[in-house]
């Protein structure tokens, strides 16, 4: 198998995720798109790990595990924030959240 086929799959998922993060209005959907981005990164890590022999092969897997853990933490906090936004303005429309407007 080519290494590039995995890396390109990762790149494709990453860009789809970026599109989702930028174009979606619903906060929950934005968080889902972020999961796509993180998964793309995981594919890259594992592909690079598989490319090497020896200890580096394990490093890729270990860091993929760490990313999965961090993603879980991120979803937890992210959804809590979305929930808070919903509670304060009865909508999860992110384009209405513009208190930082200059």
């Amino acid at each position: 198998m080519l290494i590039n086929q995995f890396l390109l799959l990762g790149a494709a998922l990453f860009c789809i995720g970026v599109y989702g993060v930028l174009a979606r209005k619903n906060g929950v959907l934005v968080l889902m798109s972020i999961e796509l981005i993180l998964n793309a990164v995981n594919i890259n890590l594992l592909a690079f790990g598989a490319m090497h022999q020896g200890p580096a092969a394990i490093t890729g897997q270990v860091f993929a595990l760490f990313i999965i853990t961090v993603a879980a933490a991120e979803v937890g906090v992210g959804l809590a924030i979305v929930l808070l936004i919903y509670r304060n303005r009865t909508s999860v429309d992110l384009s209405e959240v513009d208190l930082m407007k200059g």
Binding site: V21, L22, G102
Partner: peptide, 17 residues
């Protein structure tokens, strides 16, 4: 420059990416 500061996080994201 003020016009860029919309306060909308997704526009900032677009600029970032």
């Amino acid at each position: 420059f003020r016009t860029i500061q919309t306060g909308r996080v997704q526009q900032y994201g677009a600029l970032l990416f």
